[in-house]
Design a protein around this nucleic acid. Structure first.
Lengths: 363, 363
DNA sequence: ATGAAAGCGCTAACAC
DNA sequence: GTGTTAGCGCTTTCAT
């Protein structure tokens, strides 16, 4: 192990070259008050010619203030939020050293006032930012109020585009719907009828997936016939019953597109009950139930939304905004929607444990 | 919603509670020499009850030594390594603050002695580790020698399982081959003949993808007939000619599985030339050529290997091993193989620029 | 074997 | 408006 001097441009070096003190350099470089324009320009130009790169570490270490970020997301369904939560945990660990603390605030999406109560109870002033999963019946005006107070708010997993949130990170729901249409069309080769199990009342992403699905069929001039869809309201039972009903009325249904996890589970159960392996399901999210069904052939493809990454990146990016005053060029940061088939299912089960999980420190 | 105070356990606190000095605590915690067993155990137990978590930042900041990591990977095909390179750049930037320096060492995979020459020219002793993309005709004994000298070596993107490398991070080639089989089978519904365009002489992953493809057809009892395959030796022209030849002899070919990027490009060109939109291609890697073909319907699906992440994670994980003495539980860290279809193609084009690119600091 | 002390690069508080 | 200085938590060196 060689001992090499660390040649790095420091504030001190800039100060020396510019003939000022580190304090002044700091003020210039960080846009702080109490410096006159001339010195500022001087310092800035010296820093530039020297090729100065700030050292986030030293900065974080010396910062007295602890940055506190509120992570606001539903407490269920447990399956789905388990992965988001894991991603947040990972980010929390990485950010901890930087003096950034993540505080999880779970709300109940079923309870219309749950999130509101949560927010009301919080001492907003003690937070430096919020990352919000705007699922369920969340009142966006709440975080408009927060954003209005100068505390940055971003959304993840589910957006609230009409709100004052800074940016969104998550999936492109419409695109994933198109993907669902493409896969179902590929499987069925445009023959027969399909139906959609929706969850539209619950929140926008579901509606967007549905739109995307239609969009694909439209664009590709698919010959698939779409039968009026079923609403499942996040209840697998309703989805199952609805599908069974529909099948008695319309026996030529060949495929089902489920815009959400509960609908997928319901549809799978219905087909199992009826023993209909000839009907093809394209659904959402990899959980034990859907994974088993995929493996056993009750389902053909699952669209996977990288929940782990959503939590992880949301925390990281918001932290970055707060610490470095960084903002993305676009207000939408889309993560990929993954196609999970039988052959790559194993990769997605416990995927985080595989790679990221191992990346956690031993202690 | 507990409000946890950000109380950080420091060496000082442990020292105080254990009645020793910070120096001793440091020695105990980091297995350094010059401490007697009793004090060590005492410190360790105090640290444990206090729930001590080391602060990587302070550690990196105070460390005098600069850690140098050699990233060894081919210089072409440019398209493919552009993304790996981008991932490495991102890692380099993140790691820079931690006093970790990445040095890129590009070798020419065509030139049998290219990598060897590279390695011979290096001052091995000045490196703290190597991450190697063991593609092409790379002589694994070279990095066996390095590993033998106590310098950790990991592989990424392409493994060398028989070598002394510490662990591998990249894709599961056989699984991706199975995925290719599944998709082609799904498209063709087991009807007709398919062929495989190989690149087997080049390196193991290609052979593994091929095995996986067969494995799937076998396991699923697919009725697809596989016609003896074409070898393309990384040359799209050879692939195109081979396919055109085969098609004159065996007109009922309905699908083509290409185990590598060059084969995919060649097959696409052949079909374009023949105007055969009825033949389905499943290939590898998203580049301008394959993306255009997918969009225009000359190709049905692309398997994407997350090159960006491969470079990024390889650097991060090796750094972690060197700095924190962390080692993964398994020697294989698999990243997902993504299925790219028309509907989600846009997500994959410039995907790194979209999210990660934006994450880079402004300067 | 152990303690004391000097930084690493930066921030923030205080003095001028 | 500017300079000075005391840390942040850790590593490393030098005494003891």
């Amino acid at each position: 192990m060689p001992i090499k001097p660390h040649t790095r441009i420091t504030l001190k070096m800039i100060a020396q070259k510019a003939g000022v003190s580190v304090g002044t350099v700091d003020r210039a470089l960080n846009n702080r008050a109490g410096i006159n324009e001339e010195s500022k320009q001087l310092v800035l130009s010296v820093a530039k010619t020297l090729g100065y790169k700030p050292n986030r570490l030293a900065s974080a270490l010396s910062r007295k203030r602890v940055v506190k970020i509120g992570m606001l997301y539903p407490d269920r369904p447990t399956d789905f939020y388990y992965d988001i939560d894991a991603g947040i945990n990972m980010a929390a660990e990485e950010l901890h050293d930087f003096g950034i603390m993540l505080e999880k605030i779970r709300y109940s999406p079923q309870d219309a006032t749950g999130a509101d109560t949560c927010l009301a109870a919080l001492d907003l002033q003690s937070f430096d930012g919020f990352a919000v999963n705007a699922a369920g019946s969340f009142e966006t005006r709440h975080f408009d109020r927060i954003a209005g107070a100068g505390i940055p708010v971003i959304t993840f997993n589910t957006d609230a585009p009409e709100s004052k949130r800074l940016f969104y990170i998550g999936n492109h729901s419409r695109e994933s719907g198109r993907l669902g249409g493409e896969i179902l069309d590929m499987i069925l080769r445009g023959e027969g009828s399909v139906t959609v199990i929706g969850n539209f009342a619950q929140s926008m992403p579901f509606l967007e997936r549905f739109s995307g699905f239609f969009e694909y069929l439209q664009l590709s001039a698919s010959t698939l016939r779409v039968i009026p869809c079923i609403e499942c309201r996040s209840d697998p039972m309703l989805a199952a019953d609805g599908l069974k009903n529909l099948l008695t009325q319309t026996p030529d249904i060949r495929g089902v597109f489920c815009v959400g996890h509960s609908g997928t589970v319901g549809a799978i159960n219905a087909l199992k009950e009826l023993g209909r392996r000839d009907i093809h399901i394209v659904g959402y999210d990899v959980t034990r139930q859907t994974a088993d069904a995929l493996r056993e052939g009750w389902c053909d493809a699952l669209l996977y939304q990288e929940p782990f990454d959503q939590g992880y990146q949301a925390a990281r990016l918001l932290a970055r905004h707060i610490i470095e005053n960084w903002t993305p060029e676009r207000a939408y940061l889309y993560l990929d929607t993954h196609v999970v088939l039988r052959s790559n299912l194993d990769s997605y089960l416990n995927r985080n444990a595989r790679v990221y999980g191992n990346m956690r420190r031993d202690g």
